[in-house]
Design a binder for these strands. Structure first.
Length: 558
RNA sequence: GUGCCCGUAGCUCAACCGGAUAGAGCAUCAGCCUUCUAAGCUGGAGGUUACUGGUUCGAUUCCAGUCGGGCACGCCA
């Protein structure tokens, strides 16, 4: 609708001898119309005039199509409010039915390629509840970007080498030796979870005690990795999450045709630019030259970053940089990384390196999610994989179901701490927020079932026109909010904040329930019933399309 | 100690780029089912937007400081 207003407003401003960027917003209160602009207030300072007077001047010069904009008003400090003709929304509502499953899709990412990297847990143990938030967040962001026309790659970055994996393998070996009957003192800093014992048992069952006196860890490592990875994928699958690509960090260490690895290449390129220094036996990235600093005793000190430790091993930042260069080589227009707040200090180094090497680092977006605390009976449960007292994501899904799991993880802004109330999520009662939404969909489905079975209703595109005969306030309100769906998706996608979509859908559910109470459908004369049936078909479409992005089911009955 | 994030109704959270009387759900109080699902709707009560200043015609939003919580500050990942 904004398109109808922008040019007339520009013309009006021009005839007053001025110009400004024209911004619209949806007024909080419907008595202020459907859209408003604050352009008069913006101009107040330059023109040194009362904003209300400016607004009145603008309105007097406005030329608008009366069949679209019914009324224009000036209110408050100088807002210009536009009231749309009822028919305008209803005509537009036909689009929802015509577009069907594609309604709501946008073109922000048309012709562009995006990669979303999420989960990325190393295969050292089952996914925890804490990991779940990033997993669902990343998956939903990927869905939102896909809905904006991006060709999206969902990628999982992992490392199955290094110290952690050695500890994992040795943990399994220790448990295996226990099964062989050996007395072992199990180290405290080894993996404590029962899954280690399960893996050891599987090995013991197939291999017997044949590995008892071997120091070789390979079988333990490979078995553990394979089994744990399999369980991670299964857990993700329960939430409807499936990655397109798995990127193994090890490939960055491999020596290519040039005789160097990707990691070597990063260092030599940074060295050419003058950002590498070797001292104390280590290789440093001179981030101090790029603004990285810390403050000690109120004195700022530049800070460099180690890329290769004095042991000769790369620190984890080096492969991180190489990995991002790899993403650029794959020519993505947008690269989203989803990770937890504990990595908050890591990505600035990566971005600094990318910038220095001539990449457009603004294409990299980082979605950081704050931690999850779970409460059970009001008591906070802290989690750690290493200690083995973690609530696994699997157990959570068993407990509350996939829909509630997904919903709870994304219903809050990612940057706020999430309190996952296990008791609440488990409830099959109205205090559980996911039910409020799904119930609206189930109600619509129930009405449509009846319409088909008792009134022989068959939806037909040449009857969509009937929507324009709706007149009741609750009908119009519903049509209007359904039309905001594309904007809601776009906003959620651009900000990488799926919770905005939930907030929007909650609003739709609220307006629908009001409509439901005010407007009966089955049993009304055809002239009333049919337009309403098409209206709720449109509402159902919005719920279904929205639920698909959120990754939750759309139950026909509850 | 330093950096980043957060602080909004009793609880969990919204508030689109700085806009109009700060909104929902839960809990609570009062109503609404012979009629499409009462997992719903209507109404009431509930707020110094942590605090103090600043910028602005206008601040929950931006800036500075204070207090409180989380995370990170390693040649760990």
């Amino acid at each position: 609708m904004k398109e109808f207003l922008v040019q007339p407003l520009r013309d009006a401003l021009q005839s007053l001898g001025t110009a400004a960027e024209i911004q619209f917003e949806k007024p909080a209160d419907e008595k202020f119309g459907d859209l408003s602009t604050n352009v008069a207030m913006q101009l107040a300072r330059d023109l040194k005039k009362n904003p209300r007077q400016i607004a009145a001047d603008i309105v007097s010069k406005l030329v608008l199509d009366k069949s679209v904009v019914e009324k224009v008003g000036v209110a408050g400090a100088g807002f210009i409010n536009f009231y749309f003709a009822k028919g305008a929304s209803l005509v537009a509502a036909k689009e929802i039915l015509l577009k069907g499953a594609t309604y709501g899709e946008g073109t922000v990412g048309a012709g562009q390629r995006a990669i979303v990297e999420y989960v990325s847990a190393n295969p050292t143990g089952p996914l925890t509840v804490g990991r779940g938030r990033g997993a669902v967040l990343g998956d939903t962001i990927a869905n939102l970007l896909a809905a904006q026309g991006y060709a999206v790659t969902r990628e999982y970055y992992f490392n199955n080498a290094g110290r952690q994996m050695r500890i994992l393998a040795d943990s399994v070996r220790m448990r295996y030796l226990e099964l062989c009957g050996d007395e072992v003192s199990y180290p405290e800093d080894y993996y404590q979870g029962d899954y280690i014992k399960d893996i050891a048992r599987n090995i013991f069952e197939t291999q017997g005690a044949s590995l008892r006196y071997s120091q070789e860890l390979t079988l333990f490592k490979e078995t553990a990795e394979a089994e744990i990875f399999e369980s991670i994928k299964q857990t993700l699958a329960r939430l409807g999450i499936a990655h397109d690509a798995f990127f193994n960090e090890n490939t960055l260490y491999e020596i290519g045709e040039s005789g160097t690895s990707r990691l070597d290449d990063v260092i030599s390129r940074l060295r050419e630019k003058g950002y590498i220094e070797e001292r104390e036996g280590a290789v440093w990235f001179k981030t101090s030259l790029l603004g990285k600093k810390k403050v000690e005793d109120k004195i700022e000190i530049g800070v460099d970053t180690v890329l290769v430790k004095s042991t000769g091993e790369p620190s984890y930042r080096l492969p991180d940089i190489a990995y991002h260069i790899n993403k650029f080589a794959r020519d993505f227009d947008l690269m989203v990384n989803v990770f937890g707040a504990d990595h908050i200090d890591e990505y600035p180094d990566v971005l600094r390196a990318l910038k220095v090497l001539g990449y457009d680092e603004t294409k990299v977006k980082v979605a950081i999610n704050q931690f999850v605390t779970t409460t059970v009976n009001g008591e906070v449960v802290k989690m750690s994989t290493r200690k083995g007292n973690a609530d696994t994501l699997d157990a959570l899904i068993d407990d509350v179901g996939a829909d509630a799991t997904r919903f709870f993880f994304i219903m809050r802004n990612k940057e706020t701490h999430l309190n996952f109330d296990l008791e609440l999520a488990k409830k099959q009662t109205p205090d559980n927020p996911v039910f409020y939404l799904q119930y609206a969909h189930a109600r619509i489905s129930g009405i449509l079932r009846l319409a088909v079975s008792e009134k022989n209703f068959v939806a037909s595109a040449n009857e969509y026109e009937l929507l324009t005969s709706l007149t009741v306030k609750e009908e119009i309100d519903l049509a209007k909010i359904l039309l905001e769906f594309p904007a809601a998706i776009e906003r959620a996608a651009l900000t990488l904040e799926p919770n905005r979509l939930i907030t929007y859908l909650n609003g739709v559910a609220e307006v629908f329930h009001k409509f439901y109470h005010e407007c009966r459908i089955i049993g009304e004369p055809d002239a009333v019933m049919k337009p309403r049936l098409y209206l709720i078909l449109a509402a159902r479409q919005v719920f279904q399309n929205g639920f698909k992005i959120l990754g939750i089911s759309a139950p026909e009955k509850m």
